[in-house]
């Protein structure tokens, strides 16, 4: 049960003078249970790649395989794919349409042909999981704030109970607390329910804090596929393609340049703290040693 991209390319506006590659020869295996971060400069093809994973657009060249089946096949069940691979778009206002938030969240599971009771149960639990305030359940989705809309939109996809959850910049435009809350909730889905998460983000710190694998896109090409520590060790190269490393990576590198013997691989605040404390305690032990000798 994994998604495989095999030599996938995608061309926008094929057959017009504006035709251009958005993705070029991508090879990728997404197994179950991972938390994957997708980063890349604006226009590098992240959203395009995400839309391909649940069959919203078909690759121009190459194949996308789900459970070993080509999703472009005529007899492939797209509805099944979309119930298993959930996708939350960059801007939630494109999907809210019902008269109340609750009804809107029911739309997804309702399309799966479940009975009314199951649909409502799922909608309830999805809204609760997203910690959506109870008193707003029967509000019009258009009267919500940006952050609440985002939660409602994510709940709308979550209610379909997908195994793979794709989130295209779910935290854009949220305050720090709202951002952390949503990311924690998403991380919980992966840890507790074993869902695979793909997170597109422009925040290197967020990516470093949560994911266990990073995909870097540049001009439609997959240039790096590694664990965070390794990926961010290439921070000079990342900078060249309009990206960066988390703040702590810079601090650790500068400490190292100043001659303090820290290992520069830390990407999160916690790792950095441990590393710095380790060096400190080593130093203290060394300072004590000569005293013992005399």
């Amino acid at each position: 049960m994994s998604i495989i991209l095999d030599h996938v390319s995608y061309i926008y506006e094929k057959g017009t003078p504006q035709e251009h590659y958005a993705l070029k020869d991508i090879n990728l295996v997404i197994p179950k249970g991972e938390f994957i971060g997708v980063i890349g400069h604006t226009g590098s093809g992240k959203s395009t790649m995400m839309q391909m994973l649940n069959g919203l657009i078909a690759p121009t060249e190459g194949m996308v395989l789900f459970r070993g089946q080509d999703i472009s096949d005529r007899d492939f069940d797209k509805k099944y794919l979309r119930s298993k691979v959930g996708m939350v778009f960059q801007y939630p206002e494109y999907q809210l349409f019902e008269s109340t938030v609750f009804k809107d969240v029911c739309f997804g599971p309702g399309n799966l042909g479940l009975d009314q009771k199951t649909v409502e149960l799922r909608a309830f639990s999805a809204l609760h999981q997203m910690q959506f305030p109870d008193e707003l359940f029967y509000q019009s989705p258009f009267d919500l704030s940006g952050g609440q809309k985002r939660r409602a939109a994510i709940a709308g996809v979550l209610a379909m109970d997908p195994d793979f959850l794709i989130l295209d910049e779910p935290t854009a435009g949220l305050d720090p607390k709202g951002r952390d809350e949503i990311l924690e909730l998403i991380a919980g889905l992966q840890k507790e329910q074993g869902k695979t998460i793909l997170l597109v983000s422009h925040s290197m710190d967020d990516v470093a804090n949560y994911v266990n694998r990073i995909l870097v896109l540049n001009e439609g090409k997959l240039v790096l596929d590694a664990q965070p520590a390794e990926a961010f060790s290439y921070y000079k190269e990342l900078e060249k393609i309009g990206l960066a490393a988390p703040q702590v990576t810079y601090i650790m590198n500068e400490l190292q340049e100043k001659g303090i013997p820290v290992r520069a691989g830390a990407t999160t605040l916690r790792e950095a703290k441990q590393e710095i404390l380790r060096v400190f305690s080593d130093n203290r032990a060394k300072e004590r040693e000569p005293i013992h000798d005399t």
Partner: peptide
Amino acid sequence: ETDKIMKAQSARGAD
């Protein structure tokens, strides 16, 4: 915009 909305709703199983 229509294109985007159609995609977002298809992703939620709309037919």
